[in-house]
């Protein structure tokens, strides 16, 4: 069907032809057009068996075209209309991915991270045995890791501002709430740093011991051991971004 972008003519066509046009668009990777073609299938032939399949394919195409909001709306409708359909697990999974890929950097609002967490948890609870649950579990860990990253970002801000109490509590929350994330070694090290700055020597020693026990090979432990013994961090701290304001990426 016409690929120019003026609104597609409302042309009645047999359902198989429309469906194949849409699949061709998917093949070519022209996802936005594909989504529109699948919508046409469902609009012109809502009661055909193709319509259900087209609904899901249109959502998939919106997802590939990074139009996450449209994908989520289409998926919600599919789940509501066909709760019993065999493809429903995939619909929940695709919805979770649509939130997951909008997660923004730790410095910004983490609403999408929370929505992704809930949606991924949904997939795992509803369809524990489906093949999507395994990947959802993996992505769930990364989402939780991201939440821990947010705590660390705020903790480091307070540490640099010499607000050591605020920093300690933020790093402690990572160690207590997010034990399985990749940020725990750094959180433990930051605790050692803060305790040393506060003069809480016993806490610094205990935390360095825990870090050594759980992450013996890490650079964080090397620094922690040195600091707990009264010295300075040993690994290269020259990664300092220098005094130039970090010029943002131009393009």
């Amino acid at each position: 069907c016409s690929s120019d972008n003026e609104p597609d003519a409302y042309v009645e066509r047999p359902v198989e032809e429309l469906y194949n046009i849409a699949m061709a668009d998917v093949g070519e990777g022209n996802y936005e057009q594909a989504a529109k073609s699948f919508d046409e299938v469902e609009r012109q032939h809502p009661y055909s068996s193709w319509a259900t399949r087209a609904q899901l394919m249109s959502a998939y195409s919106y997802y590939e075209a990074e139009k996450y909001d449209d994908a989520i709306i289409a998926l919600d409708r599919f789940i509501q209309l066909h709760p019993g359909n065999p493809d429903v697990p995939y619909a929940y999974y695709l919805k979770a991915l649509s939130y997951y890929e909008q997660i923004s950097s730790v410095g910004r609002d983490q609403k999408m991270t929370r929505l992704a967490y809930d949606a991924l948890q949904d997939v795992i609870n509803r369809f524990p045995t489906s093949e999507y649950a395994r990947d959802a579990k993996l992505k769930l860990d990364l989402t939780v890791d991201h939440m821990a990253g947010k705590e660390m970002d705020v903790g480091r801000y307070y540490l640099k501002q010499k607000q050591y109490l605020a920093a300690v509590n933020r790093f402690k929350s990572v160690v207590e709430v997010y034990q399985t994330t990749s940020h725990v070694p750094e959180a433990l090290y930051r605790l050692v740093e803060a305790y040393a700055l506060l003069g809480m020597q016993t806490e610094a020693m205990k935390t360095a011991a825990v870090l050594g026990h759980n992450y013996p090979g890490s650079e964080w432990y090397e620094d922690a051991y040195a600091v707990a013994q009264g010295g300075q961090p040993v690994t290269d701290t020259a990664q300092d971004s220098g005094w130039l304001p970090s010029l943002p990426a131009l393009w």
């Binding site: 923004s104 410095g107 910004r108 609002d109 609403k111 947010k150 970002d153 705020v154 801000y157 307070y158 501002q161 607000q163 109490l165 605020a166 509590n169 933020r170």
Partner: peptide, 26 residues
């Protein structure tokens, strides 16, 4: 003050807002 949570900053970085605060956690 136990925690200071900042929401809605879709573009602005957390620290750009947090550094204007006269209160610190704790």
């Amino acid at each position: 003050v136990r925690r200071i949570e900042i929401n809605g900053n879709v573009r602005t970085l957390d620290k750009v807002i947090r550094r204007e605060f006269r209160l610190v956690e704790g």
